[in-house]
């Protein structure tokens, strides 16, 4: 299927938004976060005199950097992921494909399925759909973005320990794809309509993203989604997952001077001011994305973060890149 004009317009918009105020290095230069630089296969993300820089012409849109950035400083310019999930949720046996290979079949598309190398997003997708779904990877081997495949496999393997829904399909014969039964004519007008809507809401979505100031707290979209989905689970399931997924944060009371510097540094709002001045901050672990900014900052070494499952999973992907 060839992309129609509206779809082309969408493709032209593909790319990244760099939100410097979220980036660990922009917030606290002495940190050595290099997750995105390390994983980028084409050197398109780099640190310049001016700060974090994305070189559009070098980027091959694999979205690996988006997947590894712990704080949501790199955002894929596309429709919010919930739109994708909504489309998939309407199918009995959902198939997710990419727009990098328009000839592949799928009920919804991401720029590149490399985005799902982030285990948190893959987990959220599994929880949201609540049933098996297929990732159409049948043409990935011929794609320049094939570098993302090993990471995606690690991600899927790890998530399957909690919820085993995502199926990585590399052989066309394994693909179980059913189009909605609509006539050809109907189909094309539907597609035109949908992609027009999509193009409009993309434009909306892009406009809706003003640069935040450094002091603002913001959770990466995938964490917000995950937290929403956890709310839908039964109490037992939720307690179980929450306990395993999120880190624990402790302060060694003697060492913490109560300066609240970490409250300011934390980009996600996981460190809350204490009730009384001079006391250690309060930790809101569900907001912690384990960027390690606070521990790198605290000069009295008072913050102890024990990684949760999500952080460990992400770590696995990052260490695989070296």
């Amino acid at each position: 299927m060839l992309p129609n004009p509206a779809l082309k317009m969408l493709l032209a918009h593909q790319g990244l938004k760099v939100e410097r105020s979220r980036c660990v290095q922009h917030r606290y230069k002495p940190t050595d976060c290099d997750r995105c630089f390390k994983i980028c296969p084409s050197g398109a993300i780099r640190w310049t005199d001016d700060g974090l820089h994305w070189e559009e012409s070098d980027c091959q849109r694999c979205l690996l950097c988006v997947a590894v950035c712990p704080t949501g400083a790199l955002v894929a310019r596309e429709l919010p992921f919930v739109h994708t999930l909504k489309k998939l949720a309407a199918e009995d046996r959902p198939v997710l494909a990419c727009s990098g290979r328009p000839s592949t079949v799928g009920h919804a598309r991401l720029h590149c399925l490399g985005l799902l190398c982030n285990p948190e997003l893959l987990l959220a997708s599994s929880l949201a759909l609540g049933r098996p779904f297929q990732l159409n990877l049948t043409e990935c081997r011929e794609c320049p973005n094939a570098v993302m495949l090993p990471y995606l496999k690690i991600s899927a393997e790890q998530v399957s320990e909690s919820v085993a829904h995502a199926q990585l399909i590399e052989q066309t014969t394994d693909l179980d794809y059913h189009e909605k039964s609509v006539s050809r004519r109907e189909f094309f007008s539907l597609l035109r309509r949908q992609s027009k809507v999509a193009a409009h809401s993309l434009a909306d979505a892009l406009q809706e993203m003003p640069d935040r100031s450094f002091g603002d707290k913001a959770l990466p979209a995938r964490r917000m989604l995950l937290l929403q989905l956890l709310k839908r689970l039964s109490d037992d399931q939720r307690v179980d997952l929450t306990g395993r997924l999120f880190p624990t944060i402790d302060f060694s009371g003697d060492e913490c001077t109560g300066c609240t510097g970490c409250v300011g540094l934390c980009p996600t709002g996981a460190m809350l001011p204490p009730a009384m001045q001079g006391q250690p901050p309060k930790a809101h672990v569900q907001n912690c994305t384990e960027c390690d900014l606070c521990t790198a900052f605290c000069s009295s070494d008072a913050i102890r973060i024990k990684p949760g499952k999500l952080g460990l999973m992400a770590m696995e992907i990052i260490s695989a890149s070296t």
Binding site: R20, S21, Q25, H26, R27, Y28, K29, P30, D50, G51, S213, F214, G215, G264, L265, F297
Partner: peptide, 23 residues
Amino acid sequence: PVTPKAMFKAADGSTLHNQGRCI
């Protein structure tokens, strides 16, 4: 520690502060 610095020297020699960047 912020890039660009929230506390900075202005061209006129004064030490200025940018609230939008201060964490």
